[in-house]
Structure formats: structure tokens, C-alpha cells
Amino acid sequence: MSLKMQLGLLMFGTIGSMLLESVSCKNVHVVGDQLGWNIPSRQNFFDDWAKKKTFVVGDQLVFQYHPGLNTVVKVNKEDYENCTTKNVIETYFNGNSSVTLEEAADYYFFSSVGKHCEAGVKLHVTVTNPLKSSQ
């Protein structure tokens, strides 16, 4: 095999592994796992669910719910704590909504349907930057 071909394969392999590494650190999190985005049996269900996960920039949250029966609103901390919609950042209502976590920050979501938020259909996640591998 020629030197040019060997170098080409080496570069291709290196670029490919870098792409795989950057893709592999991105996760899709189905909010609430099997429960989905529905009223839980305990009010702290979604808090406990989030505590078991690590969220990094580029991850996706998938909120699974039936359109017309639920919503997802992205809000600030104050609205989240009070279950109010004074400062809604984004609203999702079409079912199976996907949200990409685009920056390291705290994200706050809840259902704006009836008293769902007060019943525990609310989620706070803290997103961090992905760790850089040392090479």
C-alpha cells in the first residue's frame, strides 16, 4: 500500500473516531422513562428522575404525551417554582416534543394544563459542558 493511501486511511480513521466521540456524548433522555410526561404517583417523581441523570450540552429531552391532553412550557425559575406562566420562553403542545439542551444552564419545564404542574408534572435539569477527553 502506498504511503499516501496509508496516510489517507489514518486521517479518515482519526476524523471518523472524533466524530463518533462527539456524537457519543450526546444522549436522548425520554423524560419520565416509561411514565412519560404524565401525572406521577408522587409529586417528586420528575425531580428524582432527573437526579439519576447527567445532562450535557447537545443532549435532547423527549417529552412523550398526547396532544390536547398535556403541554410542555419552558419557563424561568420563578414561574417554575410558582407554576405560573408569566414569562414563558417556549411552548410545546403537539405531543412527543423534543428539546435540545443547547447551553450549560438550568432549564425549567412544566405542564401548563390545569393543575398538572401542582401535581408534579414539572422538571428542572442542570446542563453542563461535556468533558473533554485528554489525549
Rank of each mutant, 00 (worst) to 15 (best):
M1Y: 09
M1E: 09
S2H: 10
S2K: 07
M5L: 14
Q6M: 12
L7E: 12
L9H: 01
G13I: 12
G13K: 02
T14S: 10
T14W: 10
S17E: 02
M18C: 11
L19M: 13
S22E: 14
V23L: 13
V23G: 00
C25Y: 12
C25E: 13
C25M: 13
N27I: 00
H29M: 02
V30R: 11
V30M: 10
V30G: 01
V31E: 07
D33T: 03
Q34G: 00
Q34R: 15
L35W: 08
Q43Y: 09
N44G: 07
F46Q: 08
F46D: 08
A50F: 09
K51P: 05
K51M: 15
K52L: 14
T54L: 08
L61Y: 04
L61T: 01
L61H: 07
F63Q: 06
F63Y: 10
F63N: 06
Q64W: 04
Q64T: 07
Q64E: 14
P67D: 06
L69W: 14
N70E: 13
N70F: 11
V72A: 06
V73I: 15
K74R: 15
E78L: 04
Y80I: 05
E81T: 05
T84H: 03
N87S: 13
I89G: 04
I89F: 06
E90W: 04
T91Y: 04
T91K: 15
T91G: 02
F93C: 04
N94C: 02
N94Y: 09
N94D: 11
G95P: 12
N96P: 04
S98F: 01
V99C: 04
V99S: 03
T100E: 01
L101Y: 02
L101I: 02
E102Y: 00
E103V: 04
E103L: 09
A105W: 05
D106A: 12
S112N: 15
K115E: 15
H116A: 13
H116W: 03
H116P: 01
E118R: 11
A119C: 06
G120R: 08
T126W: 00
V127P: 02
T128D: 04
T128Y: 03
N129K: 13
N129I: 01
L131A: 15
K132L: 12
S134M: 14
